[in-house]
Amino acid sequence: MFDFEFVKPSSIVEAARLLGGEGAQALSGGQTLMPTMKQRLAAPSVLVSLTGIAEMKGLSVAAGTLTVGAATPHAVVAAEAARVFPALAALAGGIGDPAVRNRGTIGGSIANNDPSACYPAAVLASGATVVTSKRRIAADDFFQGMFSTALEEGEFVTSVAFPIPEKAAYVKFNQPASRFALTGVFVAKFAGGVRVAVTGASNNGVFRWAEAEAALAKSFTADALQGLGVDDSDMITDLHGTAAYRANLVKVLTGRAVSAAG
């Protein structure tokens, strides 16, 4: 790893100033960025740690919305969201392994937008709002393809505001070595409709399965998915599974998620 200057601001304002500098890169839990830097695939000259910013940590609930600070580790979400948004807590508790969950954060996960990461599915299916150092971005506008988001240079996620669904569940088919989602589906039912978000399957990263949303809005049962097909033309093919295999998993896991949501 190339050396860099390490800085750890204690406020969002200070972090935003530091990240405006040339060669500056935000660091959250580091569970993806640090291995990337070890391989010299990233070589920032200044690394700005966001984990010392108190206003970016912790959970709060108000008016049907759960807000999670971007620097909140997965283990904290798994423990503290269990009562108010159990599907989100279960998702957070299934990321990586216990040691990774004590460092990795929701902000880091969605800013990276790995096509197989779990959190983007929850954020998109919940219709969450991504709050950044500059603005508020709807989940539908935030994720823009594999490893790509609406974040601009120097902009970073400060919190994520989740409307709490009536019913929800996340089901993932683990890639057993990495524990990333080979395919994962988050289903969320609200008074106004159903949202289904799929991770791990598409070359374009997390996406919504519109046909399933329409069918589930009429009947929130796994049977409602019968007869729906999943287009595999832009799905991932790798040594773990073909595009057709993943397309099938999308349908199977959506049905399981609907059943689990009850």
């Binding site: 390490f6 750890k8 580091g30 569970q31 640090m34 740690s49 984990t51 216990p98 990774v100 004590n102």
Partner: peptide, 13 residues
């Protein structure tokens, strides 16, 4: 008090 992988944590952090 929490287990972490010390190969993936910067000392300064």
């Amino acid at each position: 008090g929490k287990p972490v992988k010390s190969c993936t944590v910067f000392a300064q952090d």
